[in-house]
């Protein structure tokens, strides 16, 4: 059996629950702090991804992410794990599998359609 490390975090207090994942910040602190060059923000799409081959598991990204949405993936070589917006999927996995359909996948207005991460961290 393979352990799957969720890339969306669900926080709970009693019946209150709250899902949070990578915000793909414009001035992404994780990219700034990355010592290996693994964490990069794509200049065209704005998506922040971690190149698993380059990541050395120093956890500098965890140290600086104000949302606390980067996790340690210890299943193989130690690497940082975070939401990559399922960039190769038609619909993000979290949306496809949310049992309560609480997560939705929507286009922003046409102007901003192809750019994420205008909200800074």
């Amino acid at each position: 059996m393979v352990d799957i490390l969720p890339r969306v975090l669900v926080e709970e207090i009693g019946y209150n629950s709250f899902a949070i994942q990578c915000r793909h910040c414009s001035d992404a602190p994780c990219v700034e702090a990355c010592i290996s060059g693994a964490m990069q923000k794509n200049k065209n799409t704005g998506v922040v991804t971690c190149n698993e081959d380059k990541c050395v598991g120093c956890w500098s990204c965890i140290m600086v992410c104000p949302y606390g949405v980067i996790k340690r993936d210890l299943s193989g070589k130690k690497i940082a794990s975070k939401c990559d917006l399922c960039i190769d999927e038609e619909i993000p996995v979290c949306v496809q599998n949310c049992p309560n359909e609480a997560l939705k996948f929507m286009d922003k207005d046409a102007k901003e359609k192809n750019l994420v991460g205008n909200k800074g961290g």
Binding site: E11, I13, F18, V64, Y67, G68
Partner: peptide
């Protein structure tokens, strides 16, 4: 979730209302 703390330091957030939660092991945005 260490970065949540660095955000609180950087933004000089008054945490008096949530002090009892600050050192919880499952400390989070909530």
């Amino acid at each position: 979730r260490a970065g949540i703390y660095s955000g609180l330091i950087r933004n000089e957030i008054d945490i008096s209302s949530v002090k009892e939660n600050i050192s919880r092991e499952d400390f989070g945005i909530i």
